[in-house]
Computed example of a mutant assay.
Amino acid sequence: MKQKQRIFSLFLLVALVFSLAAPVSAAGEMNFTDVAPDDWYYTYVKDLYDNDIVHGTTPTTFSPQGQVTLGEALKLVLMSAGYGDQTPTGSHWASGFYQLAQENGFLPSGLSLGLNDPINRLQIAEIIVNVLDLSRT
């Protein structure tokens, strides 16, 4: 059952993926002026925020219509799959997540994005399939 919950959570991330940003503030009370309690994604953003997986683009802005970068997507997927927060291995805050993904073969072949480059939903889905070791049938 836990595997099904993780898969469901990760696919919810794909639905939200273009609304997430790099760390700016710590988990706790969520004060985003652009995420209202009646937004369909509010509880998902709140759960991920409370678990210190997502943060705002500023302390008061989440930017739900923004694009997500490779670095942000790697953090979302890997932490949602049970991997811990990664210490940077280079100058980019997500370099540790990138190294973990690279070492474990989670990155799609031919992916040529920098950590700050926008990533599309197909590429994120491919990473999720690799992280969860799902077969394509």
Rank of each mutant, 00 (worst) to 15 (best):
V77N: 02
V77I: 15
L78K: 13
L78P: 14
L78M: 14
L78A: 13
L78Q: 14
L78H: 13
L78V: 12
M79P: 11
S80W: 03
S80N: 15
A81H: 11
A81V: 12
A81K: 13
A81Y: 11
G82K: 14
G82D: 08
G82N: 10
Y83G: 08
Y83D: 13
G84L: 11
D85Q: 15
D85G: 05
D85V: 08
D85F: 08
Q86V: 09
Q86W: 06
Q86R: 10
Q86A: 15
Q86G: 09
T87R: 06
T87K: 13
P88M: 13
P88V: 10
P88K: 07
P88D: 13
P88N: 12
P88H: 12
T89Y: 06
T89N: 04
G90C: 02
G90Y: 06
S91R: 14
S91Q: 14
H92I: 02
H92M: 07
H92G: 06
W93T: 00
A94H: 06
A94D: 07
A94E: 07
A94Q: 05
A94V: 02
A94L: 06
A94F: 01
A94R: 08
S95F: 05
S95C: 04
S95G: 00
G96Y: 06
G96V: 03
G96Q: 10
G96H: 06
F97C: 07
F97D: 07
F97R: 10
Y98A: 09
Y98E: 07
Y98H: 14
Y98C: 03
Y98L: 14
Y98S: 02
Q99P: 00
Q99A: 12
Q99L: 13
Q99T: 04
Q99G: 00
Q99K: 14
Q99E: 15
L100M: 07
L100N: 04
L100Y: 06
L100P: 00
A101M: 03
A101E: 00
Q102L: 12
Q102N: 13
Q102D: 14
Q102F: 11
Q102M: 09
E103T: 03
E103L: 09
E103Y: 00
E103G: 00
N104D: 01
N104G: 02
G105F: 02
G105Q: 04
F106E: 00
F106Q: 01
F106T: 03
F106M: 08
L107K: 02
L107G: 04
L107M: 10
L107E: 01
L107V: 04
L107D: 05
P108F: 01
P108M: 02
P108H: 08
S109D: 15
S109H: 09
S109K: 09
S109C: 00
S109Y: 04
G110F: 01
G110D: 07
G110E: 04
L111V: 03
L111T: 03
L111I: 09
L111F: 07
L111P: 06
S112V: 11
S112R: 14
L113G: 01
L113P: 02
L113Q: 07
G114K: 14
G114T: 15
G114Y: 04
G114N: 14
L115G: 01
N116I: 07
N116H: 09
D117L: 07
D117I: 05
I119Q: 01
I119A: 04
I119C: 09
N120M: 00
N120F: 05
N120S: 02
N120L: 06
N120G: 03
